[in-house]
Computed example of a mutant assay.
Amino acid sequence: MTRPLAKAVAVVTGGGTGIGRAVTLALARAGARAVVVTYRRSAAEAEATAAQVRSLGCEAMVEAADVADDAQVRRMAERVVENFGELDVLVNNAGTTRAVDHADLDGLTDEIWHEVLDTNLLGAFHCARAFAPALRASRGAIVNVASISGYRAGGSSIAYGVSKAALLQLTRNLAVALAPEVRVNAVAPGTVAATRWQPGLHGEEGFARRAAAEREVVPLRRTAEPEHVAQAVVGLLGMDLVTGEALILDGGKHVLY
């Protein structure tokens, strides 16, 4: 970024829990002036995260917005810019999934397709479009939170993997569309511990077994934490000449596929 991160105003969608919470707190610790935490359902968690942000000496604003709803996103963008006068950083972290076995094609209904794509793909586009004028004015940056499932045929469902693959392509397209003022990059985590997603999909014990087995073959022999993803997001925000790129965070597992 051409402006120091210490002076930044940032929006983190889905910023109250998991990876989003870690990113929100990392930005506050990096000295951001203000961080906006958005949520769809996790109001209490968003407020708790905002309180932590304020304890770090950073302004915080909590916004309810379903990123799948373009009208809600546009209204949120208006409130953010009206309140802070600018925006420097957008982290498109809000996402959803539904567990459907890849072989169960009939189980992957149109409803599930729309739910996943509307949030994971269109949601990121809605936010990028709504905040584009402010980001251009500040010569800011966007980081999209994708997934290793965007590169390979794995993950919780076909719809989820496709949504993340499309998000990676959206990252490249937006990097061109918003250049030269705005840089657009992505992070693509593999398995991430200490979030609600994996235990929700596999159960606490099931996830623990899967993570332990994975660590036996992952080159770095570690399972990523949300803070590792936040570290990558903050790193990309500081890379002035990098745009249209995606950084995989899976301890090196992808090099073995």
Rank of each mutant, 00 (worst) to 15 (best):
T49D: 00
R40G: 06
A64H: 05
D70A: 15
Y39E: 10
R75F: 00
V62A: 03
E63A: 15
V80Q: 00
F84A: 02
A64D: 08
A48C: 03
A51W: 07
Y39V: 02
C58L: 13
V53E: 04
R40N: 09
D66S: 14
D69Q: 00
E63D: 11
A48W: 06
Q72H: 06
S55M: 09
N83A: 15
A50C: 14
D70L: 12
A65D: 05
A50G: 10
M76N: 01
A68T: 02
E45S: 14
R79G: 09
R40F: 07
V62R: 01
R75T: 10
E47C: 05
Q72M: 06
E78M: 05
E82T: 06
R79T: 13
E63G: 06
V62C: 03
E82S: 09
M61H: 02
A60W: 03
R41Y: 05
D66A: 14
A64Y: 04
N83H: 15
Q72S: 07
A71T: 13
R40D: 09
V62I: 02
V81N: 05
M76I: 04
F84G: 00
Q52I: 07
C58A: 13
E78H: 03
S55R: 15
D70W: 11
V67S: 13
E59I: 01
R54F: 05
R41S: 12
A60Y: 07
A77Q: 06
D66N: 15
V81H: 02
V53Y: 06
E59Y: 04
D66V: 11
A48Q: 13
A50L: 10
A71I: 07
D69K: 04
T49G: 04
A77R: 02
E63F: 03
N83Q: 15
A65K: 00
Y39I: 04
R74V: 14
A43G: 10
N83E: 15
R79A: 10
G57Q: 14
V73R: 05
V67Y: 10
D70T: 13
V73I: 08
R79F: 06
A68G: 15
V62P: 13
A44Q: 04
A71D: 13
M76Q: 04
A51D: 14
